[in-house]
Nucleic acid binder design. Structure first.
Length: 427
RNA sequence: GUGGGUGUAGCUCAGCAGGCUAGAGCACCAGGUUGUGGCCCUGGGGGUCGUGGGUUCAAGUCCCAUCACUCACCCCA
């Protein structure tokens, strides 16, 4: 026997039974996006590799070791998108959205790809809901993005979320702070983990959120980033906090929060479930230089990315029952051997009529016995079964069986569609 | 990339210090009721024991390798 080919590592099939949850989550995403004034954008799943190298940052783990990069047949280096922001920025510029009334507010929904070792809540192909808003420096917009994320979660029924907020400053205050931090850490260099010794060269701020207890111990008494924020960044951060206070969202200032993508400036935030560390559900922030880095005019932006697998996982852990609606359906059963040709024809005719009337309906396609058809109808969750046999064919009636009550009654063939429509509406 | 765990039927697993034709539950199909589902009973189909090698009279069981899955670290959603 030829071996069965399996899905590549880190990918998975979403089957009926599971996909309904995704549909629901996506529906909520679209609804909330509309409420917040964000419009959908669909961008390619792969882009020129350079876009991510420049946009996400050459020194980031994402670019250095997690990209799905390959050459296409024309010898161009392309990469399966590891995140959405860079592509949206590219589309914003390429389609001259910067010449439209600002701010431009966009959302996207779709698969991302990172070459990681899979584990709980981490796939090589995973899905993100993200929003990006361009053209405004207003701190109220930062808060809007946080509120959007929080409302998305609470609308789904998630509870006990922790919102971490920080400011990493603009490129000016960040470089001043970076030097101060480097100076401070330089003396304790040997005590840091290997990873952090590298970080010190490339992006000293990343040492701050190192999880190694040893490194954290060395940071005792390190310079405070908030003390190094320039007047503008400082005021911006203060306003973000002021506006957040206006909401009923509880948040926590976390000076360690830096985030791994290079493009963030000023506000950064992360939303994590309270309790055991399961990775963050959402992460985002403001980026003031990204559009320029991608070849556009200096344009501020702010956004968030929400990991949908992790959201589904958190919903599961919190035991949230999603209100998944399932339409009631009809199953047509045929009974009787001799005239099976006529019966089948009538069953097909009936099926067409029901479906034309927008009533979900199915019939046996496996040549099963009456008993088996009934069993199957129960199995697939049919609410009503229409029994069509030789007697019914002659008398021009049909037996309609309520599968929950276990009762059945004869209904005239002529009135069946009308009857079922009315009955299904009642339930 | 690093470390741990696990691979036996479609699914969840059992398989006793290596020893008869490899099992159970669920699921599937059929019958018990030749026109009636859910409960019950009976029967049936379905397994290269992840793969390759080794030890042994004998390997699902022990050893090695390999692959896959899984969890964790790094990092991130």
């Amino acid at each position: 026997m030829v071996s069965v080919i399996k899905a590549p590592r880190g990918t998975k099939d979403l089957l009926p039974g599971e996909i309904e949850k995704w549909h629901y989550v996506e529906k909520v995403a679209r609804e909330i996006s509309e409420v917040y004034g964000y419009h959908e954008i669909r961008i390619p799943i792969f882009e020129h590799t350079e876009l991510f190298q420049r946009g996400v940052g050459e020194t980031t783990d994402v670019v250095q070791k997690e990209m799905y990069t390959f050459e296409d047949r024309g010898g161009r280096s392309v990469t399966l998108r590891p995140e959405g922001t860079a592509g949206v920025v590219r589309a914003y510029l390429e389609n001259h959205l910067n010449n439209q009334p600002q701010p431009i507010k966009l959302y996207y929904l779709g698969p991302m790809f990172r070459y990681d070792r899979p584990q709980a809540g981490r796939m090589r192909q995973f899905h993100q809901l993200g929003i990006e808003a361009f053209g405004s420096r207003d701190p109220a917009l930062d808060v809007e993005v946080i509120c959007y994320s929080y409302n998305f979660f609470s609308k789904l029924g998630l509870r006990d979320l922790k919102i971490l907020v920080n400011s990493v400053g603009c490129s000016q205050c960040r470089s001043v702070y970076g030097r101060a931090l480097t100076g401070f850490i330089e003396e304790r260099r040997e005590s840091l983990c290997n990873n952090c010794q590298d970080r010190l060269e490339q992006n000293p701020l990343r040492v701050l959120d190192c999880k190694e207890p040893g490194c954290q111990a060395q940071l005792e008494g390190a310079p405070d980033i908030h003390a190094y924020l320039c007047a503008e960044c400082s005021e911006h951060f203060q306003l973000v906090q002021d506006y957040l206070e206006l909401t009923d969202i509880e948040f926590e200032i976390n000076k360690q929060l830096v985030r791994g993508l290079d493009y963030y400036t000023q506000t950064v935030f992360e939303i994590i479930p309270n309790g055991p560390d399961q990775g963050s559900l959402a992460g985002g922030g403001r980026y003031s230089n990204l559009v320029e880095v991608c070849g556009g005019p200096s344009t501020p932006g702010v956004g968030v990315a929400i990991g949908l697998e992790r959201v589904l996982m958190a919903l599961q852990e919190q035991g949230v029952q999603l209100p998944l609606k399932q339409r009631k359906k009809i199953y047509i059963v045929t009974a009787g051997g001799e005239q099976s040709g006529d019966l089948d024809r009538e069953a097909v005719r009936l099926l067409l009529e029901l479906r034309d009337a927008d009533i979900p309906a199915e019939k046996d396609l496996m040549g099963r016995s009456l008993k088996s058809q009934m069993k199957h109808a129960g199995r697939i969750g049919a609410s009503y079964v229409i029994i069509l046999g030789t007697e019914e064919l002659q008398s021009g009636t049909l037996l309609v069986r309520d599968m929950n009550k276990g009762e059945q009654s004869p209904i005239s063939r002529d009135r069946i569609v009308e009857y079922l429509k009315a009955t299904l509406q009642e339930d």
